[in-house]
Every structure is written in C-alpha cells, then in structure tokens.
Nucleic acid binder design. Structure first.
Lengths: 223, 223
DNA sequence: GTCTGTGAAGCTCTTCACAGCG
DNA sequence: CGCTGTGAAGAGCTTCACAGAC
C-alpha cells in the first residue's frame, strides 16, 4: 500500500489520465480554501464523476487515501504531478504568432502547471526577430537548432495550415515527440509521437448536437 | 436504406459525434481537391480511425455509401451538418475580451462551420461600449437582454475565473443551454445544460504523461 | 475481385456492492 | 456508523469477419 508509482502490471487508461487533470484542478481550489483532507464523495461531486470512478482511477496508481480522513489534498496534488511528469518544468515552443499564438504567449496558466514557453516561431519574415509577450520570435529556419538548444519537449501548433505538416515533420526529426495542435487541418505524426487536437469547431458541433437531442437518445454524457 | 436521420431506436454515442467533426474536416479537404467519392479505407486513414469504425459510425445514421464508388464527399459533408445541427447558422456570444477572447473574435473558423459570434461581454467597464474585431462589447449588465434579443444558443467563456459561475447561471436562466469553457475553473451547469471544457493544461499534461510511458503500458491511444 | 453495412465477438470502461478498516 | 480499495457485474465501444451488392 501507499505505493507511489503505477502498479507494475496494470495498463493505464487515458480516460483516467485526463481525469487526473480534472481532479488536480479541484484539489488546487480546495487547497486555496485551506482544506487539508477530502473524501471521494466531495472530490467526485466537484469534478462531476462518480465516487466509485474516482476511487478506481486512483487505485490504478496505488493507495492514496486515509480511510476516515479521506485524501490528503496537497499530497495527492503532488502525486498527480509526479504521475503526469510535471514535477519538473518542461520547455514548450510555439509555432505561429498570430492572434491565437499571441494569446497563448500571454497565458499564465502554463507556468503554474510546470510548462515553460521557451520560444516562438513564425513563417512570416516580418515577425522573426521581434519580441512577443517577452518571447523572441525565431525564423522557421532556426527550428531544429532552437529545439535542440532549449531541449523542447512539446511543440504547440497555432500557425496557418500551410506548412503545418512540414513543421511537425522537422520538429519530430529534431526529437520532439509531443504536439498540441490548434490548427484545423488533417495532420499525421511519425511513429512514437503523439498529437493532441484542440478543435474549437468540433466542440461547438458537439454542443450543437447535444442541444438538439433528448437526453435519453445520447449515451455517455459526461458531467 | 438511404435514410437521412437517426435510426429511430438507436442511442448515439458521443464518441461517434466527435468523430463526425473529424470526418467532416477530412471531407472538406477532399472536396477542395475536387475529389467526389471516397472509400472508407481512405477516409479512415486520413482521420486516423479504422475503416470498420468509420462504417459503424456512419451506420448509426443510416446508409451513406454507394457500394463501389464509396461515399459522396459533398453529400456526406452536408449530411453531417444536418446531424450536428449546423445546417443553419447559430448565434454565439463571448464572455471575456482578454487576449484569448480577442483571438477568438478574430478566428474565422466559426463562420465556416455555421457559427456566428454575435456579441461579446466583459466585466471591465472600460471595455464595455468599445468595439473588438468588429464586434461591440457589452457590459455584463446587458447579458440577459442581449442573449434574448440575438437568440444566443451557445455561450463561449473566456473570462477571468471570478464571476464565471455567475455568468453561467444568469445565461442559463436566460435560456442558454450550451457553454464552451476555456477558463480553468471548476464550474457546474443546471440540469438540461451542457458544458464543454477546453483545458489546454490538461491536454499538455496528457502529452507529458504519454511521452513518459512505454507504448504497451497505455490503453486506448487514439490516432 | 472490392466495396459497404452489420451480427457477433472481444475488449475496455464504469458502476455496483461489499470486505476490511477506523 | 462511514470510509477506502476492489472483485465482479454491467454497459458501452471497437474490431472482426462475412453476406450481399456491384
């Protein structure tokens, strides 16, 4: 019991990993309210999952709870950091310094969660060399070199669709394995790499669909 | 065969609905390339799903395909619009005209997909009355009235965490049932309402987790 | 032969329900 | 009593594999 890592033989569900982020957000809010311990019931209600699911998720990684006090808020938050690998700061780089890219450069949430936006790139020669929100914008020509020098682990994509796949391929060749893509364009990544899509229109379409359905015609409505 | 709507008794999986957006994005790219028909194999490869899954998803809504020519690209795209309800333009409103809010106001993808950002709100009195990216910014005091007047169906949340829940509750009372939330804050919506979260940090944490795992320790890696 | 649409099987995820602890 | 952690059951999702169409 009280193990820290994963159980040796268990596969980990990505659904579980996604919920860990949700739990941690709630834990941080509880921590700000100076709450030290929380039961599965309360944390589940805050995050919109069932208590059983919360306990099952945590059980994937061992025992977290103290039976009658519940879970230690700060300790569980720290454990989630270790599990997802954000207990040490990771360098990000951004491709595309348009409206969205600049908004991302101004976003303070990255640092709070252990991510540092270390560099930005843009294909527009007029932007290269300028500074946006305190970050130097590099030419795309410098992509490989800057990635290596700064040890960039994750590339955030917010450029025009043109050249997107090329940026991915070059970054992957330079050692980047993870991509966070805001650009609504079909892409592919090499084996061993991961790409997460943030597709605003897709989310809106999902909402549009949901708003037209009777509740009992839809399965798996979360939250 | 060739039915347009859903099969009367079938429940629809939200996973399927999310993939419909993916399929449509690929169909639009094929359409731009003047391709008229596509087989499940090719469309599946473009979107990173299995051909069986694609056919199963489509089968939820009836028959789409012509056996040896495959699927009619433009017709299938139009059918997906009807299914998700974006065949008619829907009005959105935005709460929060900070960096992210302004980036969203400049984003052209909404109109292409049948959404119109009809109004913006901000709690900052200095912003109320000003115009951002061609849209008038209203005071939060006008929330209910503007929502009713413009028949806003979906509210996009990009404000500060303070006042977020209040904005949701007031909008819901004024008839908004769908929310797209960019703000990293625990929220809740009344019964019958839906909220979709866009949590950039959660996506990064997922990538961070994935990059540290051996492939065989993770289940359900999509794409 | 190749294609779609689909019953059936296999797999994963969620929920139930309770043993064991405090 | 109420709590966590977990085996077992249930529900849902994906894949297989093939009938029927071309």
């Amino acid at each position: 019991m009280a193990s820290i890592g994963t159980k040796r033989d268990a596969k980990i569900s990505l659904n579980t990993v996604e919920r860990l982020s949700l739990y941690r957000r709630a834990l941080e809010e509880l921590s700000h309210e100076k709450i030290q311990y929380v039961h599965s019931h309360r944390l589940a209600a805050l995050t919109g999952v069932t208590p059983a699911q919360l306990r099952r998720d945590l059980a994937t990684f061992g025992s977290f709870g103290n039976i009658s006090r519940g879970y230690d808020v700060r300790q569980m938050s720290a454990t989630i950091s270790r599990i997802v690998g954000t207990d040490e700061v990771q360098n990000l780089a951004l491709v595309g310094v348009g409206h969205l890219g600049r908004a991302l450069l101004s976003y303070k949430g990255f640092e709070e969660r252990g991510f540092h936006v270390a560099a930005a790139f843009d294909a527009d020669p007029d932007k290269a060399g300028r500074v946006f929100a305190g970050r130097r914008c590099y030419s795309m020509d410098d992509l490989e070199e800057v990635i290596s020098t700064l040890n960039v682990r994750i590339l955030v994509l917010a450029s025009h669709p043109q050249g997107l796949q090329d940026a991915i391929d070059r970054a992957a060749a330079a050692g980047v394995r993870c991509f966070l893509n805001f650009v609504p364009k079909i892409t592919s990544v090499p084996d061993g790499c991961f790409i997460e899509q943030i597709d605003i229109s897709a989310k809106l379409e999902k909402l549009s669909f949901l708003s037209r359905q009777k509740v009992d015609q839809v399965s798996a409505v979360r939250r």
